[in-house]
Write a protein that binds this DNA or RNA. Structure first.
Length: 424
RNA sequence: GGAGAGAUGGCCGAGCUGGCUGAAGGCGCUCGCCUGCUAAGCGAGUGUACGGUUUAAAGCUGUACCGAGGGUUCGAAUCCCUCUCUCUCCGCCA
């Protein structure tokens, strides 16, 4: 969320930025409402001042005289007036809040302008596309033939976009999760957390999923509880409504969680295979940083995520999301896109973002300076490190052999009990 | 699920027969003094948000906040209602 003050003082700038993002918001009456709010607030507060003063005077009267004090009648009227003013104020506040809460973050100045995915510039490439002297297969064919991925039974148990992993398929996914967690905790200094997989409405609002993206979430019937679409939600909310000490920043967390997404509006996209599931596993990196450090922290976080693919020896590219492709809460985002030879395409495997103070304002996460003693909103960041399911896809497609077996990447062998390859 | 107790400032902890309580007292922390150093001691300070004043900051000032939301009252941390969470006991359970 952007601050009321910032928005009301920069309406034209906001409109301009919204255009870049290709989003729309009705800001027509905003200035009017802000003025109205400030008038009501002032009036209400001055009446409250009067009421407080007079009430104090009444309290000082001897008890015998209190009952007949004309001031009581007078204050009765004032109290009614205050109640009416506050009711109007609440109405205006709600109008303002309804606009602010669905306004996206402002893209950072370094974000490339663009109209869509095709305008995302490539920041760098790592590794090379592997050469095959046969036609590489797609992961779902490989997985089914090896008996490690069972899409039909997943669909039977639950429905479309749910998959049953079996044998070394299940083991490989677990190996990846452990490999990622170990790397980030022991080599990159992140603290591992295992958060709840169900969160309340306040948490979802804090990170920006609610109220705008309710359709993408699984809500538990009759409750204001939701299945998490990413660990970003529970982990960022660790510090909701807290004030941290400056010397405790930055704080870096890594969490494995399953993620649950309705994928509303993606019918017909990636219908086969593991790429787009309603439930998938992900290792997520989350940071809380001082404002002046957050863009440096983003670069580090991105590199921490890249290391996973480097260690796995899989070719990828990093793209910077352009203004139109940026997510709702993000000020800047890099995507890591892994090479999938079976698909002959790069596919997103991680998204690393700096949310600046956008989520911190919603979730009310601040820190107190050591010298200046001021409280300031922190900056929050996060990125996948990485999506486990898609990483498994990348391994199947990049490490496939002509006989349909899968070589195990060196770094994963110890997590696979020394296994060299998965074969029939 | 049943019965009970509780939720106060960074922490502990009073207040809870309504007004003098933004909130006693202690601890912690910060600054100053003192001491050869440390400890002890002395003095002052020590929440957040929003608004007004100000070129700006500081300062001054107003409002709100004693788990959350409503209510009663001229006036509520204190009374009433609802909710959330924590703890104890019983039941059930991985």
């Amino acid at each position: 969320m952007l601050s009321l003050r910032f928005v009301s003082e920069n309406l034209d700038l906001i409109k301009e930025k919204l255009k870049l993002r290709k989003t729309d918001a009705n800001l027509d009456d905003f200035a009017k409402h802000v003025k109205e709010r400030s008038d009501l607030l002032r009036e209400s507060e001055s009446l409250k001042y009067k009421k407080n003063q007079v009430s104090k005077e009444i309290g000082q009267l001897p008890p015998s005289e209190r009952g007949k004090s004309p001031q009581i009648q007078e204050m009765k009227a004032v109290a009614t007036q205050i109640k009416e003013l506050d009711a109007s104020l609440a109405e205006v506040d709600a109008k303002i809040e309804n606009v602010l809460i669905i306004l996206p973050n402002i893209p950072d100045a370094s974000v490339p302008p663009g109209g869509g995915e095709e305008d995302n510039p490539t920041v760098r490439l790592w590794g090379e596309k592997p050469e095959f002297d046969f036609t590489p297969k797609q992961h779902f064919d490989l997985g089914e033939e090896l008996g490690i991925l069972d899409f039909e039974r997943g669909a039977k148990i639950t429905g479309a976009r749910f998959t049953l992993y079996k044998g070394f398929g299940a083991r490989l996914e677990r190996a990846l999760i452990n490999f990622m967690l170990d790397t980030h905790t022991t080599e990159h200094g992140y603290t591992e957390v295992l958060p709840p997989f169900i969160v309340n409405e306040a948490s979802m609002t804090g990170t920006g999923q609610l109220p705008k993206f309710k359709d993408d979430l699984y809500q538990l019937e009759g409750l204001d509880y939701y299945l998490i679409p990413t660990a970003e939600v529970p982990v960022t909310n660790i510090y909701a409504n807290e004030i941290l000490a400056e010397e405790d920043l930055p704080q870096c967390f890594v969490a494995y969680t399953p993620c649950f997404r309705k994928e509303a509006g993606s019918y017909g996209k990636d219908v086969r295979g593991l790429i787009r599931q309603h439930q998938f596993n992900k290792v997520e990196l989350v940071k809380f940083s001082k404002p002046e450090d957050s863009f440096d922290e983003l670069e580090k976080l991105l590199q921490n995520a890249e290391v996973i693919l480097q260690k796995l020896g899989i070719h990828y590219r990093v793209v910077a999301l352009c203004t139109a492709d940026l997510g709702f809460s993000a000020a800047k985002t890099y995507d890591i896109e892994v090479w999938l030879p079976g698909q002959n395409a790069y596919r997103e495997i991680s998204s690393c973002s700096n949310f600046t103070d956008f989520q911190a304002r919603r979730a009310n996460i601040r820190y107190k300076g050591k010298s200046d003693k001021k409280t300031t909103l922190v900056h929050t960041l996060n990125g996948s490190g990485l999506a486990a399911g898609r990483t498994l896809v990348a391994i199947l497609e990049n490490y496939q052999q002509v006989d349909g077996s899968i070589k195990i990447p060196e770094v994963l062998k110890k997590y696979m009990g020394g296994l060299e390859k998965i074969s029939k």
